[in-house]
Simulated scan of single mutants.
Amino acid sequence: MCVILAHSHRSPDISPMNVLSEMEDEDCLKDVEINGHDIPSLPIMDANGHPVYCSTELPLELSGVPILADFGQMLPAERCTSDTLELIEGRNLFDPIDHINNQYVLPLALAQYIGYLGPPPLEMIQKSPLFSTYFDKQGNWASEPPIPQTSLEEFVTTISPGEEKDQFLRFIRKLLTWDPEVRATTNEIYPDEWLMRSHEDMW
């Protein structure tokens, strides 16, 4: 069984919560439904008086090619999502957090973005009062912290160097852009060569 949920937003949010897989055997769902009727779950009341029902563990066997499902989670263009590569690498690409004070630090975020994506377009810097605080008139980074020496090529370690990794990096760069106007739309990203690879050709 596979359910696809797709909303017509401009760019997809690729994260573990938005990836579905097929089930080997759907009969287990019928068993759960039958057992639910025969032995109804008794709720436990939480501290606020709300009922909490026990969940049922399913003996699932997943197979098939993972399917990108939900395009409904959106973020403002000024922010980059931190979970784009989490599904592949199991870690965040960006970490612009002051962990001592548990605060988001914009200059740290911008420095990390530049490290992976290069500097934002000069026109974008000149139009943004916020950006002008951190860049000079030529579009050069003029703030702290320094730009980290990073790259997407080095960050992606779970895909071996070669054709697939090259395709994957091209795919990611279509989504990770400063300018939302040049970011690949949902319709543009569907036929991407990396997404079209057969299951046998991946990893």
Rank of each mutant, 00 (worst) to 15 (best):
Q126N: 14
E78L: 05
E22F: 00
E154K: 01
Q167V: 07
E24Y: 12
G162C: 10
P59D: 10
E22A: 03
L106T: 10
T177C: 06
P120F: 04
D95P: 08
P12D: 15
F168T: 04
A6Y: 02
P120Y: 00
L85T: 02
V19N: 01
L85V: 03
D179W: 07
D70W: 03
P12W: 14
L169P: 11
D46L: 00
S15V: 14
K165T: 06
Y104P: 07
L85P: 07
V32T: 10
D95K: 06
M17K: 08
A109V: 00
T56H: 09
L85I: 13
I147P: 02
T56I: 10
D46A: 02
H7R: 10
E193D: 14
I44C: 01
G72I: 04
M17F: 08
W141R: 03
L106K: 04
S15G: 14
N92A: 11
D179E: 08
T133L: 09
E181G: 02
P146E: 02
L152C: 11
P145I: 06
C28D: 12
L20Y: 08
M124G: 11
E57W: 10
A6F: 07
A6E: 07
I100E: 15
L175T: 07
I39H: 13
A142S: 07
R197V: 00
P59Y: 10
